[in-house]
């Protein structure tokens, strides 16, 4: 009896990885080229930016919030940092005579800018107690508009060193995938190895109890949205580097939805308090396999979105049933 119980538990705990495995097998059968090293790296490179943003937004969802700003803030950070690395003599430079600044400095500026944006709306959420959905919806509009005010045309001709993380390869291995792995490691570390992670779990599970236990709920919420926004900034800079330009109207557009979808498919509960980094990683890969695989199979874009939609909704239905059973 014990043995059957364990296998059930194994399936339920690793369900999402089994789904991923199944998808990979199906795709490999349908399209033998799918499961090649090259295609896997293409897939990962393609999902890296959304994935990194998912590692951010999962903290917001875990805390019983949401962050809709990240796509726009990624776009804003992309434009501003890109403007700092255009050649000094470039006729179309957004900030003539400023660039190109050294890439490491620009990366720091980008991260700081991201952190500042997140801290501002994090503070608004924490202290005014307005719903995060509303606060970050406002943030989304403001950041996108700010990017368009900053420059009304795409920012291009960026320095190679700035483009390195987004576009270079080390011995055939994309640097963007390395950044993705680093961000995954940091997110996992924050969530499981630090007080901050434990605090966010407690706040999402029962914010009143967290407060009584001496947790500074406001401070931790600000940190949550700061982290979200830092992830968005990393994503934005990678995006600009990968594309070779930053577009105020389109860079990062709707990326928040893909990031939220990945975190959700990965089992992060929108009622707060439940999240596993490994699950979110699987969620990112599942959506990536669908994106990449269906493109390879030349499936129509609209069809792909229907499949994605069904998977997102289906995964939440399954999760809710699983969680209800545990109660």
């Amino acid at each position: 009896m014990n043995k059957t119980f364990d296998s059930k538990k194994f399936i339920s705990q690793n369900f999402i990885w089994l789904v991923l495995l199944m998808l990979v097998i199906i795709m490999s059968i349908a399209q033998p080229n799918f499961f090649s090293v090259n295609n896997m790296l293409t897939l990962l490179s393609g999902e890296a930016v959304k994935g990194i943003m998912a590692f951010g937004v999962m903290f917001a969802i875990l805390s019983k919030g949401i962050d809709l700003t990240i796509g726009s803030s990624a776009g804003l950070v992309a434009c501003i940092t890109a403007a700092l690395v255009q050649p000094a003599d470039y006729a179309n430079a957004v900030l003539p005579g400023v660039g190109p600044l050294p890439a490491p400095l620009v990366f720091l500026i980008g991260l700081a800018l991201g952190a500042a944006i997140g801290a501002v709306y994090g503070a608004i959420i924490a202290y005014t107690k307005i719903p995060p959905f509303i606060a970050t919806l406002g943030g989304q509009l403001i950041c996108r508009a700010a990017a368009k005010i900053f420059t009304n045309r795409p920012v291009s001709n960026l320095s190679d060193s700035f483009r390195y993380p987004g576009s270079a390869k080390i011995a055939g291995f994309p640097v963007i995938v390395i950044v993705f792995i680093i961000m995954f490691t940091i997110a996992a570390f924050l969530l499981t190895q630090t007080r901050f992670g434990k605090n966010v779990y407690a706040i999402g599970g029962n914010d009143q109890a967290a407060r009584v236990a001496g947790i500074n709920v406001e401070k931790n919420l600000i940190l949550v949205y700061t982290w979200c926004s830092i992830c968005a900034a990393v994503g934005g800079m990678l995006l600009a580097g990968r594309a070779g330009s930053a577009d105020p109207a389109n860079s990062g557009l709707n990326y928040e939805l893909d990031a939220i979808a990945a975190a959700t498919v990965g089992g992060t509960s929108h009622t707060g308090g439940i999240c596993r980094v490994s699950g979110v990683l699987a969620g990112i890969l599942i959506l990536g396999v669908i994106n990449n695989g269906l493109v390879m199979l030349k499936v129509d874009d609209n069809m792909t979105n229907i499949v994605k939609g069904l998977i997102i909704v289906g995964s939440v239905v399954l999760d809710m049933r699983k969680n209800a059973k545990r109660a």
Partner: peptide, 13 residues
């Protein structure tokens, strides 16, 4: 329940 336990978290947490 209101401000004591965090039900989803483990006994340890």
């Amino acid at each position: 329940r209101g401000n004591g336990i965090v039900g989803l978290l483990s006994v340890r947490d």
